[in-house]
Structures are given as structure tokens and as C-alpha cells.
Design a protein around this nucleic acid. Sequence first.
DNA 1: CAGTGGTCTAGACCACTGA
DNA 2: CAGTGGTCTAGACCACTGA
Lengths: 226, 226
Amino acid sequence: MNGTLHDRIRTDFETRILSGELAPGDRLPTEQALMAHYGCARMTVHKALSPLAAAGLIERRRKAGTFVARPRAHSMVLDIPDLAAEVAARGQAYAYRLLGRTLRAADASQSAMLELDGVHTADGRPLAAEHRLVAAAVAPGIETADFARQSPGAWLLAHVPWSEAETRITAAAATAAEATTLGVAKGAPLLCVARRTWRAGRLVTLVRQAFVADAYELVARFGPRG
Amino acid sequence: MNGTLHDRIRTDFETRILSGELAPGDRLPTEQALMAHYGCARMTVHKALSPLAAAGLIERRRKAGTFVARPRAHSMVLDIPDLAAEVAARGQAYAYRLLGRTLRAADASQSAMLELDGVHTADGRPLAAEHRLVAAAVAPGIETADFARQSPGAWLLAHVPWSEAETRITAAAATAAEATTLGVAKGAPLLCVARRTWRAGRLVTLVRQAFVADAYELVARFGPRG
DNA sequence: CAGTGGTCTAGACCACTGA
DNA sequence: CAGTGGTCTAGACCACTGA
């Protein structure tokens, strides 16, 4: 067993859960019991179990204890480029609707940028609002692309090879504009995916997608060294 | 500022980093300085900054200090269903090669299972080894599917709508079989993606993909409530 | 070799919630 | 109302590594 004590405790439980020895709904020992079993302080036990709770592998309730989590009802893998395929796989009709298109001319501080606003829909219901900036110089042809047939993301994936990408996921309250686009109340919770993509060190696109929280849920469980 | 103190400290730095106030390479205050600034114990500062380091937003080096991380060189978004598109987007030729196909007949304990082994390649180079089990009853037609043209994942995505999925990512050492398949040394580090997919409560497929670690890197940065 | 972060301890007070 | 987890303290020793 390499690594730190809290790593070892965490790995112990990951192993027991992933192997099925501990099944969904099973109760884990209390922190007190684990302190005694591993001969360590409570903070160390807590540090071991916290990431498992954050990753959704276990659920912790005060007074009741700690339990192996049941698989979530609605889940979706982090999959930004092929939203269309994901929706199709659910047996729904996917569409992208362009809402706004602005070409910002180049100036001293930055090169020309195409600004695109749109919404992804599943069976006509808004699924995600998308705000995107594209560096026009790095994506030749995008000014004349037809986004009625293909979303900007799909167009870029097909036309501009990227080499580096960075994704951030956050939760946020719907702004007034997002609320209108998505047909939810202002302040409703949204799942936001912000992504920056580079090609050979040059920024290609910057996109922010806001998903209706109860229509989508992202799940990604990380194991050791995740 | 809602939530706990360590949440507040973490949010402070997330905000300053995402806004660009703190640029890549910039040094953050030491834990000692932050203890004084926030009037708290060192553990609390540490608890605030640890997740940022785990998420790759900052880098910490003993003696040197804490710095805003530079974007990683090679990265890829969690995107299991459309590996083919990802590889194509990098300007490489994608292929799936089937290595083994076994039909396990139904018995008392479980229904019929199709076991598929294969390898995903980019420009002919092995990228990921895939081991997959498919519940034959839930995926009618899969017994006669041709995986020379389409990977099992793509076939399933097109033919069997799924409703729930769960993904786990871990690092593991290559087994002898994986090493042979991928053309790496036994024990070489692999990035493993294990995924279970359900349809209406019934398990459809169980897949384990092992990526050559230096050919692929998964990056997903999580913000607050991630 | 001194500064910095990594881990861990042994406690404390509190919030929540099920028996 | 008692058990459980959530947070936090004030310290300790150590590992690493750059000045």
C-alpha cells in the first residue's frame, strides 16, 4: 500500500465499492470506528472519505452515517463536442438554433472575432444555451458557414483541428438572458461548461454552454490519481 | 460570501484566476500569509487550496510556493462515445480493430453476454485497448454486427438508446495482455476509463478502455460545487 | 539550510437528523 | 436528544527543493 494513510483508507473503500463487496445502500463504518480501525485521527478519516463523497461514490448524512451511493438517475458523460450524438442516443431529436451572430472587427488589442449565440434543443425543448467566440483568423470560412445545418461546435470540429483544450464546469444561476433562452426562471440553476480550445498555441474558440440543471447532470467519478 | 471559510478562500482564488487578475505563472501568497490574511488555521488554507491543485488550476512546490498553472500541453476532454471524432479532429486516421469475440451463453446466474476485445488506433498506432461486455438480449443484432466498419461503442450509440451511464477514471499499470495490445512495456502507466451503461434499469454494456498514458491525457477542471 | 508545502494529531464546537 | 458528520484550531514533524 503506497502513499499516505488517507490515500490508503480511500483506496480501501474504492476497492471494496468497485468490487461490489460494498453494494449500493450499504453502510460504511462511522468515522469513530474507522479511527479505531486505522489508528488515526478523525481528520485523516475525513480527508479519506471526503473525495469519495464529492465524487458521488458515497453519501454522507449526519446522524445516519455513510452509505454507498446508488447510481444516479440522470447522468451524462462529459461530452461537449458531440452533444448531437448524445441527444440522438437518447432517442430525441437534436437541433441547434442560432440566435445571434456578430462579427467584431480586429482592432489594436485583438484580432477579428466572431461572436455566436445559440441554443441546443432536444425534441424542441431548450437543453443548453451556448455563447461562443471564435478567432476568425484561425477558422477561415466560418464567417460564411451555415449554422442551421451544423452547430458551430460541430463545424469547428470538422474544419479546425485543435491540439489543446481546457474545460471547466461550474454551477450558476440563470441570468435574465439565459432564462429567456432556456425557458426557465431567472436564477434557476444551470450547469455551465466553459471550454477554451487552442490550435498550435493560438486560441481558436471560447465557449460557454449553460445546461438546464434538471435536464442534464454531469457525472464523472475519479479514482486514485484522478 | 456564503458557505464555509475554506469555500470562500477557494472561491476568492478561483475568481482571481479565472478573471485573469492572477495570470499563469503568478505566485500566490504562502500559507502563512493566507493564515494571517484570513485569520484562520493552516489546515483551513490548505483545505481551500488543495482542490485547486488537484484540479490543475494551481501548482504547488515546496520551498518555491504556489503558482497559477499554465495550460497543459496535451489535453483531451472526457469524451468516450466519440473517440473517432476526437482522433479525426486531431488530423489523424482513426480505426478500431477487433481482437476477440466470444459469446457467453446464458446460464442460471446471468443472461447471454457478448465479450469483445479490440483496440482503437490513431494513424495505426494503438491508442486504447478496449474490453467490453454487452448484454445480448438488450442489444438485438449485435451478434451479427460488423466491427470492421464501426466500433462496438459507435454501433451501440447508434442502435441502443441508453438512459443512464456511469464513468470512472483511474490510472493503472499495463497488464501483460494490455502491454502486447498497446505496444508498451508491461507495467507502463495507462489511463483507464470504465463505464457502465443502462437502459431502463437494465445493464446494456460494461466497457473498460485503457489509454496509453503519454498519448492521451484527460483534463477536467471543476469549479465550485463540482 | 531555511522556507515552503504535505500530512497528521487530538481536540473543540456545531448542524443536522433519525431513533 | 443522542449520534453522526462538517468544520476549524493550534500545533507537530517531515519531505522536498531552491537560494
